[in-house]
Design a protein around this nucleic acid. Structure first.
Lengths: 120, 120
DNA sequence: TTTCCTTATTGCCAAATGGTAATATAATGA
DNA sequence: TCATTATATTACCATTTGGCAATAAGGAAA
């Protein structure tokens, strides 16, 4: 008697995929990284990121639609802030893995170097 | 004196983005979900997923290039298995958030329903 | 009001991407 | 050998998407 794991509907899968997709873009990830430190206005992000204002607004809109950031008007400007603490954990998980891979790679390089010396 | 957070290079940002991007696609996520239970051959995945073999091989190749799965030949067939436990955590983080949102949404609906009744 | 500043939107383009049919490659069996 | 099964690759198409110039919209200051 096989017990099926609670199967997600295609819609749920798509929802999860959409979340990852929003994070899977360098510009959006750079914006989030800036917002990790503190809330910022659009202009502050633009000057920090070497990209045009239209693009920053566009990507910020996508982050907002994904409920990852809040937007607040203060007079003329709009301040964005991270409102979903989960993305801290997501990013640190990936970063830890990549760093681990890099360390492993370095070790392998060391082994290779040793093997190379022996081969002389 | 402001202390800058250790800034990631654009290359590192891109690497992280690439990882999220691989996960940000329903077909690949469905494949991973199947592999969560146990290793599977390509054909087993094809019959489970209502998509063509060429596409499954293509997406499996991308998961393999991202070092998320291993591939092992056994005679005629190739078995894929998850080799990066981190993706369990990534997916469960996202799923928990979405479920939390759904519960909150349900509560809000409840409040709305109450308000609606009161308004009669 | 008009002018200036900040942000959002629109329209467009080039590049990337998911999907598929057809074909190639690889291993097994007759 | 040839045929069959399983997987990977290639070529192509339709769609999506990141980026930008131009413009709109919204507020502040004159």
């Amino acid at each position: 008697m096989s017990k099926k794991s609670p199967s997600m509907t295609p819609e749920q899968i798509q929802t999860v995929a959409r979340m990852f997709k929003v994070l899977g873009e360098p510009t959006r990830l750079s914006i989030l990284k800036l917002l990790f430190d503190k809330p910022l206005t659009v202009t502050e992000i633009v000057v920090a990121l070497d990209t045009k204002q239209a693009n920053v607004s566009k990507q910020l809109g996508m982050l907002y639609d994904a409920d990852l950031v809040t937007r607040t008007r203060h007079g003329n400007q709009v301040t964005y802030a991270i409102c979903e603490p989960m993305i801290f954990d997501l990013c640190s998980l990936v970063c830890c893995k990549l760093q681990k891979d890099a360390v492993q790679q370095a070790k392998n390089m060391g082994i290779s170097a040793t093997a190379f010396r022996k081969s002389i």
